[in-house]
């Protein structure tokens, strides 16, 4: 290697070191503002909703970004767990953490069933199979009496944590959910950076080679699928806890589409991308009406005022733009700009 190349290597290492220390300070900033948020007048429920979607997107990314599997059925775990959580909270009056555990358990089992079937086929078929099986779950939830049909489950009580900490106040719920989401996020980061995560990376990069080196890749993929489904179910249970309802929209495939979009916008295979994507997409969905009015005012085009009713269309347009010219997502592009060597 020439001296120049070495120098280039060193300097890019330095840059990544700086980036690392920067990302540490960034996480501190984000963490502090999250801890203080309820005191500076931010509506905690909105933040929690975003956090739940951020966790959902991170779990989804564990598959698409770090294993190379596109699941199109994650709504089944997310929305399904919300129903399970809601049902047990409502009719059995159990402590919140037990409800969450039941929701996650449901996600894990369903993940095992769907995952075992879907890994029998590769590539695009995998996506279609997960989509179809999740649709089946949707229909089952639509028809089963306990889900309340089209109305969904309303008025899910938050119950008590460990049986004695009431979660009635948004503030207590806020810190509880924040804590759980943070822990889950750290767990995902660890999984990605574990010996197991290395094999997942290898499978994503070249599955036949991983097989030929003696790894039973189907088993690795199935474990990744179950893990991802469980974390998605955790996100779904938390969302039901926070908002107090579970509806069919969360089980429908359009929700699977949403989580794909969040991950894609933020950056597939990056740790922070899905979080950023979730923030953006949830905010967009919340504020799109206002954005429409603003655009109508600026451009004078009346049509923009109806934008509030056209969330799916706007989502679709973002999808198209992302796929055509923005595949690395925000974080992906950012890292590429700052770390040209990679």
């Amino acid at each position: 290697m020439s001296a120049f190349e070495k120098e280039l290597g060193n300097s890019s290492k330095n840059i990544s070191k700086i980036l690392k220390s920067k990302s540490v300070s960034w996480s501190l900033v984000v963490l502090t503002s999250l801890l203080l948020a309820p005191f500076i007048g931010v509506y905690p429920v909105l933040i929690l909703k975003i956090l739940c979607f951020a966790l959902f997107a991170c779990s989804f990314n564990l598959l698409i970004g770090f294993t190379g599997l596109l699941s199109f059925g994650h709504a089944a775990f997310f929305g399904g767990a919300g129903y399970i959580f809601g049902y047990f909270m409502k009719s059995w009056g159990i402590p919140a953490e037990i409800g969450i555990i039941l929701g996650v358990g449901f996600g894990a089992i369903l993940g095992y069933v769907i995952g075992s079937l879907a890994i029998k086929r590769q590539g695009i078929y995998f996506a279609m199979i997960t989509l179809a099986l999740a649709q089946m779950v949707y229909f089952i939830f639509l028809q089963t009496p306990f889900t309340g049909g089209e109305d969904g489950l309303q008025g899910i009580p938050r119950g008590k944590l460990f049986g004695f900490i009431p979660l009635d106040s948004d503030l207590v719920t806020y810190y509880f959910v924040l804590g759980v989401v943070l822990l889950a996020f750290l767990a995902i980061v660890r999984i990605v950076n574990s010996p197991y995560g290395q094999i997942l990376r290898a499978i994503k990069e070249n599955e036949p080679r991983a097989v030929s080196l003696g790894y039973d890749t189907n088993r690795f993929k199935l474990i990744a699928f179950v893990t991802s489904a469980s974390f998605s179910a955790l996100a779904g249970s938390l969302k039901a806890l926070v908002l107090g309802f579970a509806t069919l929209t969360d089980v429908h495939w359009t929700m699977s589409g949403s989580v794909i979009l969040m991950t894609l916008v933020g950056g597939l295979g990056t740790l922070t991308g899905p979080i950023l994507g979730a923030v953006l997409i949830v905010m967009l969905e919340n504020k799109i009406g206002e954005i429409g009015f603003f655009l109508a005012e600026v451009t004078g085009i009346q049509w923009f005022e109806t934008l509030g009713q056209s969330v799916p269309m706007v989502t679709g347009i973002i999808f198209i733009i992302c796929v055509l010219s923005f595949r690395q997502g925000i974080v992906g592009i950012f890292t590429r700009v700052c770390r040209p060597g990679r």
């Binding site: 794909i260 969330v311 799916p312 269309m313 679709g316 999808f319 796929v323």
Partner: peptide, 15 residues
């Protein structure tokens, strides 16, 4: 990406 792009197109048409 083909699946995702046509999904986007679907959402736009349906929207």
């Amino acid at each position: 990406y083909g699946l995702l792009l046509t999904l986007g197109i679907t959402l736009v048409i349906e929207g």
